[in-house]
Simulated assay, not measured.
Amino acid sequence: MIAMNANSSGPLLQLLSNGLQIWIRGQCDDVGELKLNLQGSALQLLRGKLEGVSLTARKVSFQKLPLLRAELKSGALQAHINPSNPGQPIQLSHPFTIDGEVVLSGADLNRALASDRWRWLGDLISEQLMGLTPLQTLSIDDDLLELQAAVIATQDPVRARFGLQAAEGTIQITQLETGKSFLLPMDPGIHIDKANLKAGQLILQGKATVSP
């Protein structure tokens, strides 16, 4: 068995690593730092197969969600190698699983929920839990979530604090005062196992199925 990173020597190993990096970056809006480790035997690699990939990335934007950090591991991969196409030297041919942890800062999450891409989700959370829209701000205070929603009749926003945990494969947000809770809508290919707030960050652990 061998493990290699993106700087591994050997043309085939470098091609596989470079190809996977190109594919991963193509799935994201932006990637600041990316490190890969490939696991597999030499024979498997020659056949375009890998037992798995572990990935560490920092400052990633995925579907307009800014991630501070992502640490992920994949299941087995099957790939077609095409050295003649430097822009896409590797093509993944079958769905595969990934599991691991992603971290978002409260400030980045607040900006994301104010964006055109995710404003609907912020307003949905505010409406379901506070009966008000639009969501004005979201912040994380240690292990609690605070939401503020604007009220037309007054200049002062309504504030409420919430707990957060994983439930039913997604994220459950619960208002501390009333106990009212709301399950976030989740992509059916994603399953959240753990969710918690700490030091101004949202930390999620779970698994997903990726279809190339």
Rank of each mutant, 00 (worst) to 15 (best):
L45R: 14
L45W: 10
L46Y: 14
L46T: 13
G48Y: 03
G48T: 00
L50N: 11
V53W: 05
V53P: 05
S54T: 15
S54W: 12
L55C: 13
T56E: 06
A57M: 06
K59E: 03
V60G: 01
Q63V: 09
Q63Y: 11
K64T: 10
L65N: 08
L65R: 08
L68F: 00
R69E: 02
A70C: 05
A70N: 04
E71F: 02
L72K: 05
L72Q: 05
K73F: 10
K73H: 13
S74A: 03
A76R: 11
A76S: 14
A76H: 06
A76G: 09
L77A: 05
Q78D: 07
Q78F: 00
A79P: 02
A79W: 00
A79L: 10
H80T: 14
I81C: 06
I81M: 13
P83W: 07
S84H: 09
N85M: 09
N85S: 13
G87V: 00
Q88H: 11
Q88V: 13
P89L: 01
Q91K: 15
L92D: 14
S93F: 01
H94W: 01
P95T: 13
F96D: 04
D99I: 11
G100W: 05
V103N: 01
L104F: 12
G106C: 03
D108A: 09
D108F: 00
L109R: 10
N110T: 05
R111S: 15
A112I: 03
A114M: 13
D116E: 12
D116R: 08
R117P: 08
W118Y: 02
R119I: 06
R119E: 04
W120I: 08
W120R: 14
G122F: 11
G122A: 10
G122R: 12
G122L: 10
S126D: 15
E127R: 05
L129Y: 08
M130A: 03
M130G: 06
L135I: 04
L135Y: 05
L135A: 11
Q136C: 02
T137W: 09
I140T: 02
D141R: 15
D141T: 15
D142E: 15
D142N: 15
D143V: 05
L145D: 02
L145F: 02
L145K: 01
E146S: 14
E146D: 11
L147M: 03
Q148N: 10
A149T: 10
A153F: 07
Q155A: 01
D156C: 00
